[in-house]
């Protein structure tokens, strides 16, 4: 049986892993290579790196970080943040990323999704969607780190990018991100039920039951979390044991 994935997320800037609340207020969480190795040892199924650096100087740093991680950690690595062109996709894949995630640039230029998927295959193209609730049952796509409303409906946008060749959707609830109140389960289920590709739930995990709920109630194929792992509240292994005890198939 296909297991549900647990994906620790590392927000990287200036060569360090950081964590914010509702997309602002960053705290240092440590060295990316050391953190990646630790999660691999704990049994993480994949790792996601989001480059939240604004400058091009910082941008080259993540290539070196991915190179370092990929030479020591043999699980899938997804990298996103600042991916604007097919050439950016190539640079990240060449550095050792297995999947590349695009967000604002996909909204600005949906052909980027189609072009990158046609060239490199859907398996390595992830579209990240930052979703903000506008009213009950409705969510709007936001870009530029959650600052800019895109005027698009989240479920419609998810269906469009899947049709254009995205192999996976990384879905973040902006309302819940950093809140520790759990995933937006209605959002997650709405998107997961609407698309034929896997959906990663993100934003809001505060305890291990939230991970279970993301799968059983949100119908997510994978769950992503950052702070519960970074600050040592739980190990990935503890999360898997808890999920297995709730009847969720996980790789132990």
């Amino acid at each position: 049986m296909l297991t549900k994935r647990i994906i620790p997320c590392l927000d990287v800037t200036a060569g360090r892993v950081v964590k914010g609340v509702n997309f602002v207020g960053l705290r240092d969480a440590g060295d990316p290579v050391e953190i990646a190795k630790r999660y691999n040892t704990q049994g993480a199924d994949e790792l996601t790196f989001l480059d939240i650096t604004a400058t091009s100087d910082g941008r080259d740093l993540i290539l070196h970080i991915i190179e370092d991680v990929a030479s020591q950690v043999f699980i899938p690595l997804t990298v996103g943040g600042g991916v604007r062109t097919v050439a950016d996709v190539r640079r990240l894949l060449n550095a050792g990323a297995d999947k590349v995630s695009m967000n604002s640039s996909a909204v600005a230029n949906p052909d980027l999704v189609s072009d990158a998927a046609a060239y490199y295959g859907s398996q390595c193209i992830v579209v990240a969607i930052d979703a903000k609730q506008t009213e009950a049952g409705n969510w709007e796509v936001f870009t530029h780190g959650g600052r800019t409303p895109a005027g698009k409906d989240v479920v419609e946008w998810a269906c469009e990018v899947a049709k254009r060749g995205a192999g996976e959707i990384l879905l973040t609830s902006m309302n819940r991100d950093g809140s520790k109140d759990g995933f937006d389960l209605a959002l997650t289920a709405a998107v997961s039920d609407a698309v034929s590709v896997p959906v990663i739930a993100s934003g809001g995990v505060g305890n291990l039951q939230h991970l279970v709920d993301g799968i059983t109630k949100g119908h997510a194929d994978a769950v992503l979390a950052a702070s519960i792992f970074h600050y040592g509240e739980y190990t990935v292994g503890q999360a898997k044991e808890y999920m297995a005890a709730q009847g969720i198939p996980v790789r132990i």
């Binding site: 996976e168 590709v197 896997p198 059983t216 119908h219 194929d221």
Partner: peptide, 21 residues
Amino acid sequence: LAGKKQADGSAYKVPHMGWNQ
């Protein structure tokens, strides 16, 4: 796999992505 449901009631997704035995 269109229309087929997994043991937990969710739809099968394609690509088959993740860890399997």
